[in-house]
Amino acid sequence: MYDIAIIGAGPAGLSAAINCKIRNKNVVIFGGAIESTDLLKASHMDNYLGFPDSTGIVLQEKFLQHVAKFSIEIKKEKILAIYDYGDQFQLTTKEGEYISRGLIIATGIPKTKTVEGERELLGKGVGYCATCDGPLYKGKIVAIVADTEEGEEECEFLSELCSKVYYIPKYKQEIEFKSDNIEILYEKVERVIGEKKVEALKLETRTLELDGVFFLKKNVPPSQLITDLRIENKFIGVDRNMATNIAGIFAAGDCTGKPFQVAKAVGEGTVAGLSCVSYIDKLKKSN
């Protein structure tokens, strides 16, 4: 078990990690340098204190060197779901499951869109990890909507469990599957249909009756990782301590809103880290 898990390896997440580690907390970061693509694209920066005439690449290298000094673990795994068990959280990735007492979300702004019905039916037939939830659909009909070719492996896995798998790629590439029960459809997804559970998937030219649909995305928005997280104007709602509406979960950086500046992200990461440390200390005393 980790004391604190941090989702995101950009300025906010790295800043939070350092402050947690200095205060003797067992910390893990999920993500990699790729998570800070906006920073890496900055060819010239003149507004970060102490680093005039710098670049995003230089800053990111300095940040990662600082984290490495404290031997903070960075797992290059994508978080697919978070489950709140009161005094601890379970984080699910394709590679496995992890437990932490506190959680800091520093994902930046995930560049992904949802379709109608997707969020409403999350956990009711809509999922983001086929290998995680696949066994629930044994003998049933499912669809996979994939952003990248990584979805092909999960499609093959589901084809061994399900009676029928529709594979809907959002990328242009020639695809071949060995299984006969996989049908590839190059169509735009319009909405997920269902009331209490998924019943069908509406495409441009047809409607597929099915039992479940998996959206395999490059990045999963925080609001879709955990239920009941408060979102305000498309950003995570936090207070002055960077605390969200869920006890034990804090957020920092671009995912909390404007201004989208490195200095703001680093500052919020510091506050989130210190706040999460305080939360963990009180939790341990109460137990």
Rank of each mutant, 00 (worst) to 15 (best):
V192Q: 04
I175H: 03
A272W: 05
I175P: 04
F51C: 03
K138H: 03
V165G: 04
A251Q: 09
F250E: 07
N245H: 09
F30T: 10
S100Q: 10
I141F: 01
A81Q: 14
S43Y: 13
V192K: 06
G267Q: 02
Y166C: 08
G50E: 01
D84S: 01
K188C: 11
D254I: 00
H66A: 01
S278A: 11
C255Y: 09
G123N: 12
K218Q: 14
E190A: 05
T107G: 04
E176Y: 08
K75Q: 04
S71E: 04
Y48C: 00
L136S: 08
K78Q: 03
E153D: 07
I6A: 02
K170W: 06
E153A: 12
D147P: 01
E150T: 02
Y171K: 13
L40N: 02
G13I: 09
E204I: 14
K172Y: 13
L158P: 06
P110F: 06
V271H: 07
A243P: 00
K140E: 03
Q60Y: 01
E118P: 13
F235S: 10
K78N: 13
E153S: 13
I7R: 12
F157Y: 13
A243M: 14
I226K: 07
C129D: 08
N219R: 11
C155M: 05
R206L: 11
D211W: 10
V126G: 00
K111S: 10
I175S: 12
I104M: 07
P169S: 01
A243K: 14
Y85A: 10
V220E: 14
D53E: 02
G273T: 04
N233K: 13
T270V: 11
I175E: 08
E183K: 15
A265M: 10
E61H: 02
Q261P: 14
V277G: 00
P52H: 01
N26Q: 08
E73A: 08
S36Y: 05
N19Q: 13
T205P: 05
T227A: 15
D281L: 06
T131L: 00
N287W: 07
A68Q: 07
S278G: 06
T148S: 10
I29D: 00
E209Q: 15
G108A: 04
P11G: 09
N47F: 01
K170V: 04
G13S: 09
K113R: 10
A5P: 03
T93Y: 13
E199V: 11
A252Y: 08
L208R: 07
C155I: 05
K197W: 11
R101A: 12
I105E: 13
V192H: 04
I226R: 05
